[in-house]
Simulated assay, not measured.
Amino acid sequence: MAYFDYAATSPMHDAVIDAWTRAVHLRGNASATHRDGQKSRLMWEEGRDKIAASIGALPFDVTVTGSGTEAINLAIKGLFWGRNGTPASREAGAPLPRPRILTTEAEHHAALDAIHWLVEAEGAIVDFVRVDDTGTIDLKDLASKLSDDVALVTTLWTNNEVGTIQPVPEIVALAEAVTVPVHLDAVATLGYTPIDFARSGLAALSVSAHKIGGPVGVGALAMSRSWPIVPLIHGGSQQRLRSGSLDAAGVFAAGVAAERATADIAANAARLSALRDRLLTGIRATIPTAVVRGHHINRTPGNAHVTVPGLDSVSALFLLDEAGHAASAGSACQAGVQSPSHVLRAMGVADSEGPLRFTLGLENSEAEIDALLEVLPTIVARATH
């Protein structure tokens, strides 16, 4: 089976599996004071330090979470409470000083659902900033919506479906001008685009280990100490922003994965871009109705996203799987839900356009790309009505 779904989850390298196996045999709780506990603590800290280094953050500014989704929730809800106070700290019936959240309709559901919860439970107001037909945020629209009643701006650094990379320095500069914190979901960025959190001007940045060949169940949030934030989980204070027993094995393995993923980003990106372009060139040549989605220049190197008029994506994916090729139509978090992509809708793409997303990794080869291109035109024709 050829695997073209790295954006959903990336296979664990043997070095990562070995690291996890070595760490999981330790028996001490990483918060215990005895020798076994301190051995576990050292492994956890080594993993956390490597995660921090991979995103250009200080180790003590990184909170390890149970997933990228948790990190995103901590950033959005925690910053909102930090800017407005928690319900317990606010006077009953008092208006929120900064009720507005700026985001786009092309976000991952981890962000959109967290914001929806704040709207329903806390009276937050969401203002959606426009994106263009490539999924790029409209900076003029963002500037027009920013004001001192905005709690935060949150957006994807790299769109997980179509691969568009947002103009991060410009977004941060606009928000800084009115003293508004910015959180970026960098889950699809880590390992593909260099990240320097300390120099970015960001308030918060979230990542996930399993997208870069680490274990499922490990995420992280880098948080600037310039902004107030309220934790989501209480009961132990093992970390500044998160309580709960420390997962030494998972974090140690995640650190190895982060170190590997960022060791030579430029060379890896060049190889992935070449494979992606080989695939897209072949699709354009053999499926004339296919439209490449996402920004054609500012895009993550391993993402090839196309739509085809009248394509039944679910049928196409089953046929691809039968032919030995694993791909997707969009976010794995929406897998099995037969509904139009909210990302494509935000970009103005008609629901009649069926999407296919091929996301590549370093284990893919030119031979696998060519084998996919041999069967793809026939499969698309069979699945198009």
Rank of each mutant, 00 (worst) to 15 (best):
M1P: 15
Y6G: 04
A7I: 09
I17P: 06
V24M: 14
A32G: 11
T33Q: 10
H34N: 15
R35T: 14
Q38A: 08
W44D: 01
R48G: 02
K50D: 10
K50N: 09
I51R: 04
A53P: 13
G56D: 04
G66W: 10
L74H: 10
N84K: 01
G85L: 01
A94F: 05
A94M: 03
L96P: 10
I101V: 05
L102H: 01
E105R: 14
A106Y: 04
W117G: 08
A121H: 13
R130S: 15
D133A: 11
K140W: 12
D141C: 02
A143S: 11
L146A: 05
S147T: 09
D149C: 09
A151N: 02
L156Q: 12
N160K: 08
G163L: 01
V172K: 01
A173I: 09
A177K: 11
H183Q: 00
H183Y: 09
T189C: 09
P194N: 02
P194I: 01
R199L: 10
S208D: 05
G213D: 00
L221E: 02
S226E: 15
S226Q: 13
W227L: 04
P228A: 02
G236V: 08
R240W: 14
L241N: 11
R242M: 03
S243I: 07
G250L: 06
A254L: 03
N268K: 13
N268V: 08
R271W: 07
T281G: 12
T289F: 10
T300R: 14
H305R: 09
V306I: 15
T307D: 06
L311Y: 07
L311Q: 09
S313Q: 07
A327I: 12
S341T: 06
A346K: 03
A350C: 11
D351H: 05
G361E: 01
E363K: 08
N364D: 04
E368P: 13
L372T: 06
E374H: 14
V375S: 11
